[in-house]
Write a protein that binds this DNA or RNA. Structure first.
Lengths: 343, 343
DNA sequence: CTGAAAGCGCTTACAG
DNA sequence: CTGAAAGCGCTTACAG
């Protein structure tokens, strides 16, 4: 391996002068500098990062940890969009990303996803949520005093910065938009409360608040269906609800895109035409990337921007510029589409 | 930061004994070992990886480099599937993955995707293809003598191991399968030759060979449409071809799933019913993850297995068990589906 | 069974 | 402007 010493020997200087040149210090004679640069070029020398790390304590690597499995479709989109934003900032700052998954608690594996962190192999962590940050991770963060930024959740801990979407407002505004299209009876597809996270809860709250503010003559809660990711279960729920509802909804707001296909299927089976009888509005817009049968009206989260922001905050913590907790809230963009019809 | 020395002080031994315990060496008195372990536990000590790297030259990190952009839909599926396989093996071996993208040549960025490699920040590289491995990367690999495994291509260089699909056979066998369903006139959707890589070329060759072997009374080449990823261009091509063909095809074989929607659309516009008038067979099966309008018959590549194999080969190189080039060919699995009808 | 010495590749004061 | 010394946290012979 080519080291500073090799370069020094070739250039006829000491290895410490090589270090100076490499680090762009000013106090080196122009002539010496030239010799050194020539030697570096000739030998193809690049400083070994392990030596640098040992000195500086900084490894210019961050960990991206997420419970999102790599093989699942829609969530992968979410992950990759966020990642593309993080990467953009990493490139600029010559930082590398170690990508790791946080295993399910039930997996009961011996695999320690925090190992790189414990080894000081990373300067900080970006946790891409959808699930609360695990307790043991929070413990480690406290102990080792290295920064972490969470995307997609709003942890209360004072040591966790976060970047999130304004889900309450998104839920509220979406109802308003649908209302403007002339719909007066709206359903909401949510998740069972043991699965759903704050994001879904907030969208749901926004839904309820908006309808109450609009003084609808029914209870918004009666039009909320809660299920899990299983499409057939959702279809049963819809069939059941359709029988029960006195006023049939003319629009459904899906709390996330993954439940859109099941929702469409459910209403079709219950005798509705989509979107003629019932409009559909989703969340995220991933489904529109996938040639789904109709273009779904949706709320687009600026995921790439959120990733960039998270990286920016993390770097500011790592560099010690900012020590106290940072937060950032992003607005979604409502995007009308074929699936939302005027009434 | 907690170091070996802190543990040593607390346990009342020298730091070198701590090192022994950490590395599970045998020649340590049971009693001493207990004291050390207690101290490690109490202080929450984890060996700092930079120190270890400097000694061993191994950093237990690999780079996953790919030209696949994080934001594009179908290719992201490909990437993530492969990644899930690599990750599985990485977990077992306590290896971390640095994920990096190889920028487009046209991007003209100052970003150096090989930096982690040059810095010896990784022990080796897995290159996830779809595009040939860049020249400058091959140069670096030669110079630094660290291993690289390519997925999805078959580079000739003696220093590159690879893992690939048997695309020729897949193309050939697919025609046979479609033939068994009673189809006698088959079209193939390919890419223009300046875009397409070896994989598409091989599938195409398999298509031609099979039809020649089956002694069809027409030239298979006349039924190959070449276009790019743009759906509307593809539709024009189809419209044009439909006019020209004397015998209309009853089945189309798409060289990749990304062209399936455009193909379906094209034939529908040309007056065909899908799949009644014309069957569709794709490649990869990603589109079936996305609630596409019909389930597409397809060829599934064992991407996760391929990722695992690539990691296995890379690790064998890194550990020095195997020095010469390794290769592995995987078979696709043909999966019939709604879009392929009997004739 | 245990420790003192040297070294991995680098940077940071310090001396000249 | 340049170099000798010490040290970052660890491991690997070597000595006892």
């Amino acid at each position: 391996m080519v080291t500073q010493k090799d370069v020094a020997d070739l250039a006829g200087v000491s290895f410490i002068t090589v270090s100076r040149v490499v680090n762009g210090e000013q106090n080196v004679k122009e002539e010496t500098k030239k010799k050194v640069l020539a030697a570096i070029d000739k030998l193809g020398y690049t400083p070994n990062f392990a030596g640098q790390v040992l000195n500086s304590g900084r490894c210019n690597t961050i960990a991206i940890l997420t419970p999102i499995p790599f093989e699942k479709s829609t969530r992968t989109f979410y992950l990759m969009q966020v990642l593309s934003g993080i990467e953009e900032l990493c490139r600029k700052n010559e930082i590398d990303m170690i990508l790791g998954t946080v295993p399910e608690v039930t997996e009961n594996t011996s695999y320690d996803y925090l190992r790189p962190f414990k080894q000081k192999k990373v300067d900080g962590i970006i946790y891409i949520g959808l699930k609360k940050i695990p307790k043991e991770m929070l413990e480690e963060l406290k102990k080792r005093d290295r920064p972490c930024v969470v995307i997609g959740d709003r942890p209360r801990s004072s040591i966790l910065s976060w970047v999130d979407t304004d889900n309450f407002k998104a839920g509220y505004d979406t109802v308003q938009k649908i209302w403007e299209y002339g719909h007066r009876t709206l359903a909401f597809i949510s998740l069972e409360q043991d699965i759903y996270n704050e994001n879904i809860a907030e969208r749901e709250k926004g839904f309820i608040k908006a309808l109450n503010d609009l003084k609808v003559p029914y209870s918004p809660e009666d039009y909320i269906l809660r299920t899990d990711y299983d499409a057939s279960k959702l279809q049963d729920k819809i069939a059941e609800a359709v029988k029960k509802w006195k006023k049939k909804p003319t629009a459904v707001f899906c709390s996330m895109d993954s439940v859109v296909p099941g929702t469409v299927e459910g209403f079709v089976q219950a005798g509705f035409s989509v979107p003629e009888d019932i409009s559909i509005v989703g969340f995220d817009g991933f489904i529109n990337n996938t040639n789904y049968q109709i273009k779904i009206a949706t709320n687009v989260q600026p995921l790439k921007e959120m990733g960039k922001k998270a990286a920016e905050i993390l770097f500011s913590h790592i560099n010690g510029n900012v020590t106290k907790k940072q937060t950032a809230v992003f607005q979604v963009e409502f995007t009308p589409n074929d699936s939302l019809r005027k009434r």
